[in-house]
Design a protein around this nucleic acid. Structure first.
Lengths: 335, 335
DNA sequence: AGTCGATGTCGAAGCGCTTCGACAGCCTAT
DNA sequence: ATAGGCTGTCGAAGCGCTTCGACATCGACT
């Protein structure tokens, strides 16, 4: 293992000079800098991470806590995680992957040991038990998702309320007066992750404003559950012509069932999905959808975090404005 | 930040004694140990990761390189990553998430800086440019996937050749003589990730042994591509009654198209999928499938790696035996 | 000519931990 | 009774880096 001292000797300067070349914290003459850089290259020097962390009390590592659960939104989570990792690298940080398994202990461990300089939490619940810990430490953190009380926290999330409103608006504009909402699995609402409720809020209040009737039904993914749910909906509101789906694994079953029942999309019924673009474009009908901007969320979270680490930036809630893309699954209500 | 020295003072012992209590590397009397442990608890002490890494030249971190690409097999990747993270924790390791973006440089950086003690590489290509680096370092590593030359490397993967054979056997046993294979996207074959070719090998050789005709067609995911591919297949081999699908995003389109054409599954045609169990059970027809054991692969990789780190274990290739689960998508060939 | 502020470099003091050798005390075997 | 071996504890030396204050050099002012 090549050390700083060896580089220094090779370049004929002192260790501190090499350190300053590396960090740029003091000015170094061009000739010296070049000589040092040359030595670094020749010797294949890489600073030792542990020593650096010890001396500077900075590990240059960001911890990312992902949910343990792999039953929901996996591609979204993965996309966020990858966006976090790549964005972090552009700022000189590496990413430590923590699972939700350890719960609050993981937060204690990481902050206590100086393993990471900061953390990003995904899948935050409304009343998450990790929040008090985050508030009680001076280690910067960013949440992806919105808890009930955001005071003293920085959060990044899609504006799900606006998302709900946007979906209703689009359908209402096309003349739909009876709209059914296929929601997440009941467990999601019970877990109080918040985003589902916020979407529903947005849907409901905009529906009321526009005089549109709304029926909301949570739904497990898969064909059987969707079949039951759809039957119930059409039984209660036979005049339903618009659907809003917020459950990736219910999208395809819904389309299949509608097809099977002879209801054409978009001629007879319209479907708006809230899902990643990839799902929307790969479905059997190209879906009008509001995208879940996974990449943007990940990138944004890292950027806020880095800002905090640099002493810039402050606590705030960033709600990403939803965008609805019209594709082939929505059209005017049938005459 | 509480330090070792503070704990030592609080417990009335020397710093080294506390260290030995923590590591267990020397015997400590019960009374002393308890006193120290008590102090640790009272003060809420967490050893500083950087100092530890510096002094011991062990970071207790495992690096995991995931592919940057998020177009294929995302849930599988995520499941592996999570299995790696949780298994690593049970052995006292944390996981550093690296994306494929940096390529070989990431390997240099991590081994050079002592950031991680070992690494796991996913999505290894047949002739991966990172392999020489791994062979040239004494840092342990495990690959998930199989390169062309495995000498000096430890690899964990599903036995895709046996997987292919298993699929053919199952269909042949049910009387199918004309089998079509819906493969991965052409890009996957071009990238030489190996698993697709190995599956094909297994399929072909077993088909030949059993006197079954095989037609292989790569296929992009999605409905349009699948429609084209299916039409071609049925055009060339109208008597095809069995399908093997190795492309998650082609599964549902295939089922929909077959349904649409009035071909009942499993009465008229049988479908075997190579996919995670979750996909198989959530499809519109519960699919007979060979599971991709993501969890097991992740767990296994970590366990081999830890064994190497402990000086046990050696280079070897672990091929996980595939298991075919019969569900509702395969049946005897129609009379 | 003498002073002052830049500018560039160096030495040394840690950062918090692990680990080695030393050693005091005690038990067992001669 | 004494040598020898355990057991439990300690002190001190680093691990490789950052960073602070010191200092020499030099050009630009008065």
């Amino acid at each position: 293992m090549v050390t700083l001292a060896e580089v220094a000797q090779h370049a004929g300067v002192s260790a501190s000079t090499v350190s300053y070349v590396l960090s740029g914290k003091r000015s170094i003459s061009t000739t010296t800098r070049q000589r040092v850089e040359q030595s670094i290259r020749e010797l294949g020097y890489h600073p030792n991470a542990g020593a650096r962390a010890l001396a500077s009390s900075r590990s240059n590592i960001i911890a990312l806590m992902v949910p343990l659960r792999t039953d929901m939104y996996v591609p979204v989570m993965m996309e966020i995680a990858i966006a976090v990792a790549t964005t972090a690298r552009t700022h000189g940080y590496d990413v430590l992957l923590l699972t939700g398994e350890e719960g609050p202990d993981a937060v204690r461990r990481v902050t206590g040991s100086g393993l990471a300089d900061a953390m990003i939490l995904m899948d935050v619940e409304l009343d998450d038990e990790r929040l008090p810990l985050l508030r009680g430490t001076d280690q910067p953190s960013v949440l992806i998702g919105l808890p009930a009380d955001t005071s003293g926290l920085t959060c990044v999330d899609l504006d799900f309320r606006a998302t709900g409103a946007l979906c209703v608006e689009h359908l209402a504009m096309l003349g739909h007066r009876d709209i059914a909402v296929i929601g997440e699995a009941p467990a999601v609402y019970e877990r109080h992750t918040g985003f589902a409720e916020r979407t529903l809020d947005g849907l409901r209040s905009r529906a009321q404003e526009l005089g549109v009737r709304l029926l909301h039904r949570p739904c497990e993914g898969g064909y059987d559950a969707m079949a039951v749910t759809l039957a119930r909906i059409l039984d209660e509101r036979p005049g339903t012509t618009g659907f809003v789906v917020q459950n990736e694994s219910a999208v395809e079953p819904l389309l299949a069932l509608l097809r099977q029942q002879g209801r054409a999309v978009p001629e007879d019924v319209s479907v708006v999905a809230i899902c990643p673009d990839q799902v929307a474009t790969q479905a059997s009908v190209r879906l009008t959808s509001v995208a879940i901007p996974a990449q943007e969320m990940g990138r944004n979270a890292v950027e806020r975090l880095v800002a905090k680490l640099d002493g810039r930036g402050s606590d705030e809630v960033v709600l990403i404005t939803p965008e609805l893309t019209v594709r082939a699954s929505t059209g005017p209500v049938p005459a």
